[in-house]
């Protein structure tokens, strides 16, 4: 008996259970990622005053710039959500459109962030300048690395949906990607508040 026939004979429930496990497993993985970020936040909190004679956050952070970044990421989380709804409802073109928008906004965010990093690194505020800067770059940079992975994943998913449509597997992976992308905006809320806002407020 071929695999397709065997699967057809098998209860649809098994497939659904497998999807359910995938989503739950991924959620659990994200919880562990939260602990990873928490360790980086703890390190930042311990080291944020250790400027070693170098610049502090207050001197370095360009708040309007950060606000633009934040809005880009927040909007991308929104468009991602709309893409998820489209996937649920089987609207393939809407899925491609919304996720492309999400990708564009995500690239905007990442570009702004990399430009900021580059500027800091080339003006004597690189990550080997002080404990504070080491912690800053690593915390924000780890978030940026996650964003990068998300963007690569998004490109793969968009091309898969264009290629084979909204198959069960594609919908499952889009769901995971969506959860991942929302989670990254959640982490950014804390980076925005604890690193940028608090860094600027401490006078």
């Amino acid at each position: 008996m071929s695999v397709q026939a065997a699967r057809a004979v098998q209860d649809l429930d098994h497939e659904v259970e497998a999807d359910d496990r995938a989503v739950f497993g991924f959620w659990v993985y994200l919880m562990t990622d939260c602990v990873l970020f928490a360790s980086l936040f703890a390190t930042y909190a311990v080291l944020h005053k250790n400027t070693a004679g170098g610049p502090s956050g207050h001197q370095l952070f360009d708040m309007p710039y950060v606000l633009v970044e934040t809005m880009a990421l927040l909007t991308s989380s929104f468009t991602c959500g709309l893409g998820m709804l489209a996937a649920r409802d089987g609207r393939k073109n809407a899925v491609v459109a919304w996720f492309t928008a999400t990708f564009a906004l995500g690239v905007t965010f990442l570009t702004l962030e990399l430009a900021e990093f580059h500027h800091l690194a080339t003006t004597g505020a690189g990550w080997s300048r002080s404990g504070f800067l080491s912690a800053y770059f690593t915390l924000v940079g780890t978030h940026g690395a996650h964003i990068t992975i998300g963007l690569i994943w998004m490109v793969v998913m968009i091309s898969r949906v264009l290629g084979s449509g909204l198959t069960r597997g594609n919908i499952r992976r889009l769901t995971l990607l969506g959860i991942f992308w929302h989670f990254l905006d959640l982490v950014w809320i804390f980076i925005f508040t604890i690193v940028y806002l608090m860094g600027t407020a401490r006078v």
């Binding site: 311990v46 250790n50 070693a52 404990g131 080491s134």
Partner: peptide
Amino acid sequence: LDRAVGTHFFTAGAGGDMMM
């Protein structure tokens, strides 16, 4: 990172904190 690129998480100067 401390060893490879010269960050200061746990170094004995430049704002590192070994106890962390």
